[in-house]
Nucleic acid binder design. Structure first.
Lengths: 154, 154
DNA sequence: ATCCATCCAGTAATGATTACTATTTAATAA
DNA sequence: TTATTAAATAGTAATCATTACTGGATGGAT
């Protein structure tokens, strides 16, 4: 669980970004960010929509999409999860990487000094300038491993 | 460019896979794989479709999608490129990683001993079993860098 | 408190991918 | 080689996530 302080900090940071970029810090935007900043689940758009709806029943799905695009543009959040159909989001912009369960889609954060110090190979450097490294470990999460072992459920 | 030998080898390997798994090695499937195995471009579905159409004019887009799914299931090809909308494919199943140009979508292969030896952090290992590591370097390719420098084109 | 550019709700449109069905074909054996 | 049959294909419709559009609503500077 993310601490209230941490969540509040991220929301406050967004308000600062709004002033700088001249975009409005509306109720909808704050709630969407608050929702994302308060979880480690890396939710998808539909999930964020459902949850924000509990606070703002009339909010539209398009607003959620638009807001997430805006937040990403401003560098406040990031898109996570390769290949898969539904895009998932992360309000943690500190340097970290992801473990993804191929079965249930669970995403977990981890850090790695090795990856942080990763020297770009000459071979790759020759292709162009490198802005970032995206790393994803793929596997089967603990929970899915357990369930695979005891197929007692019918 | 991929050598004819290499391409032929990949196609032959697929025929073997077909016999083992009891799926038919049809003309369409062979041509789709031949197309993908003969390029280093990591093409998307539409591109593969257009190219195979030159050899099999009546082929349907659905067949291309179905075949690529099949090839991926059998471990003959891989999906590449995170986040983006159009999925791209790679017939090179040897251990390697990708450089992706955020501007034009160019994808290049590279290898890295550091990444191949990457020890899964305890933190990540606790989340579950790790099957694979997906690494992607994101940046701007040489060509796009050049074009950005001389904005003479109107 | 007012004004106006920006934003939002509701809904339609888009674009990639998948599903469906009647017809064709690959693979096996006679 | 030909017959047989399950599997594969072509053509097209359907689906699903995401994006676009529009008239009405709202944040925030004055």
């Amino acid at each position: 669980m993310i601490s209230r302080d941490q969540t509040a900090k991220r929301v406050a940071a967004f308000q600062a970004v709004c002033r700088i970029h001249g975009v409005k810090a509306t109720h909808q935007r704050m709630e969407i960010l608050r929702e994302l900043a308060g979880t480690e689940e890396h939710p998808d758009v539909e999930t964020i929509y459902e949850r924000v709806r509990r606070r703002i029943p009339a909010i539209s799905l398009d607003t959620v999409y638009r807001t997430l695009r805006l937040l990403e543009e401003k560098g406040v959040i990031r898109r996570v999860g390769s290949i898969k159909d539904r895009t998932r989001f992360d309000a943690n912009t500190e340097r970290h990487h992801h473990f993804v369960c191929a079965q249930c889609g669970m995403i977990g954060d981890f850090t790695s000094d090795v990856l942080d110090r990763f020297p770009v190979p000459r071979e790759a450097a020759q292709m162009g300038s490198v802005d970032g490294v995206y790393v994803e470990l793929r596997g089967r999460c603990r929970k899915c491993q357990m369930e695979a072992k005891k197929p007692e459920k019918r």
